[in-house]
Design a protein around this nucleic acid. Structure first.
Lengths: 198, 198
DNA sequence: GCAGTTCGTTGCACCGAATGCAAGGGATGT
DNA sequence: ACATCCCTTGCATTCGGTGCAACGAACTGC
C-alpha cells in the first residue's frame, strides 16, 4: 500500500525504533513483574533512555499498553462505516469487532495482555474510557442503521446499542481470559448478545 | 428503625461529623472551581483538618464523591434480590435502578454531580469500575432469573445483561444531563433498553 | 476517680506519575 | 558551512497517596 516502505528521514526512523524499543521493553517488564509493580524509571533505564524522554514518547504509562487510541478509534469507525448498509446495527458491530483482533507483539501474547488488564485497575479504567470515546465515534453510523432521526437531540438509542455491544465484547473477552484462552471468544460474544436480546 | 438515634460514643459522633464536614466542604469546592482544579490540601484546609487526616477519612479524592462503594453495592444487591422472582431480569434491574435515586446533598444537586462526572475522567473511570463490581454482585441473582445452570463455568450471559442494563442507565443519565435535567431519565432508560432489544 | 489502653490527629519523609523549562547536541535544509 | 530544528536530558515542581512514629484525648476496667 505505502509507496515508501523505507522511513523517509533518519529522525523518523530512530523515533520509530525507540518507540518500538520502549514498547517491547515495557511489555516484557509488565509481564515479568506486573504492570503496577513496574515503574517508569525501570522502563526508561531498561530501554536505555531517560525518564523524561519516556514521557516524550508516551503521555502516560498506560499509553504504552493502550497504543494510539485516536488512531485505533478512527480505524474502528472506518471499519464500521465500510460494512454494507444492509447489515443491521448489531451485525455490523459484530463484524467490526471480530476484525479487531490485535496482533500479538513479540513481548506479550494476547492472553498476557488480557491478564494485565485484569490485574491493573488503571488499565481497565482507560479501557472503559476508550469505549466511551468509541460511543461518540460510532454513534452517527449506528443512528443511520437504526433509522434514528438525525435531528433528535441527544437520542440515547444509538449509544445504548454501541455500549451494550461493547459490554458484550468485554464480557466475552473476560470469559475467554478466565478459560485460559481455550474457549471461542466469538461464540461467547454471540451468546452474550443473544442473552440480552432474548 | 434504629433504636439508638443518638450515636453511642463521642468518638463515633465526632467521626461522623468530620466525615460530613469534609464531604460538604469538598463538594462545595468541586462545584465552585471544578473537581480536578481542587487539591486535597485545599479541601483539608477548608475543612480545618490536616492533609494526612483527610486520607484517614477517605482513601482517595474520588471517594469523597463516590461515597462508600461497598455499602452501596450491597444495598443494590439486596434491592435486586428483594424483587419478586416472577420479574424478568430486565424488569428487576429496571426497578432496582429506579429505586437508586441518590438524595441531593446540601452542597451539590444531582445535576451538578453529573456535570462533575462529565468533567473529570478519573471520576468517570471509577464510576465504570463500580459497575464492573456490580456485575459480580448482581450476577448470581440475574443468573437465577435467566435460568442459567449454576454449574456453568464463567457463563457470560448474566454479566452481559447486567452490563447492558448499566450501559443503558449511563446513557440515559448522560442524555438527561445534556438536557439540563429537563427530560425524564426513566423514559430515556426505557427507550435505550427498547432500542437494543428491538 | 485513676491507670492503662485504644484510637484519632498530625508532621515528616517518601514514592511514583506527570509537567514545564531551559540548555546542549546532533540532524536537517539551504 | 551555517543556521535551524528538534530530540534528549536534567532539574525543579506539583499532586495524589502511603508508612511511620509521636502526641494527646477518649474509652475501659478497677
Amino acid at each position: 500500500m505505502d509507496p515508501q516502505p523505507a522511513a523517509p528521514t533518519l529522525r523518523e526512523r530512530t523515533r520509530r525504533a525507540v518507540h518500538a524499543e520502549i514498547t517491547s521493553t515495557a511489555l516484557r517488564l509488565f509481564v515479568e513483574q506486573g504492570y503496577e509493580a513496574t515503574t517508569v524509571d525501570q522502563i526508561a533505564a531498561a530501554a536505555g533512555i531517560s525518564r523524561r524522554s519516556f514521557f516524550h514518547y508516551f503521555a502516560s504509562k498506560e499509553d504504552v499498553v493502550m497504543g494510539d487510541l485516536e488512531a485505533l478509534g478512527v480505524r474502528v469507525r472506518e471499519t464500521l462505516e465500510a460494512r454494507p448498509t444492509t447489515e443491521t446495527a448489531w451485525e455490523a458491530l459484530r463484524e467490526t469487532f471480530i476484525g479487531l483482533q490485535e496482533q500479538a507483539t513479540d513481548a506479550a501474547t494476547p492472553l498476557q495482555i488480557a491478564d494485565m488488564y485484569a490485574e491493573a485497575p488503571s488499565l481497565r479504567a482507560r479501557h472503559l474510557e476508550k469505549h466511551l470515546r468509541w460511543q461518540e465515534l460510532l454513534a452517527p453510523d449506528i443512528e443511520r442503521r437504526l433509522g434514528v432521526e438525525p435531528g433528535a437531540t441527544a437520542d440515547p438509542r444509538a449509544r445504548a446499542v454501541i455500549a451494550a455491544a461493547l459490554a458484550c465484547l468485554d464480557v466475552a473477552v473476560e470469559a475467554w481470559r478466565q478459560s485460559g484462552g481455550t474457549s471461542d471468544p466469538v461464540d461467547l460474544f454471540d451468546q452474550a448478545v443473544a442473552a440480552l436480546r432474548a
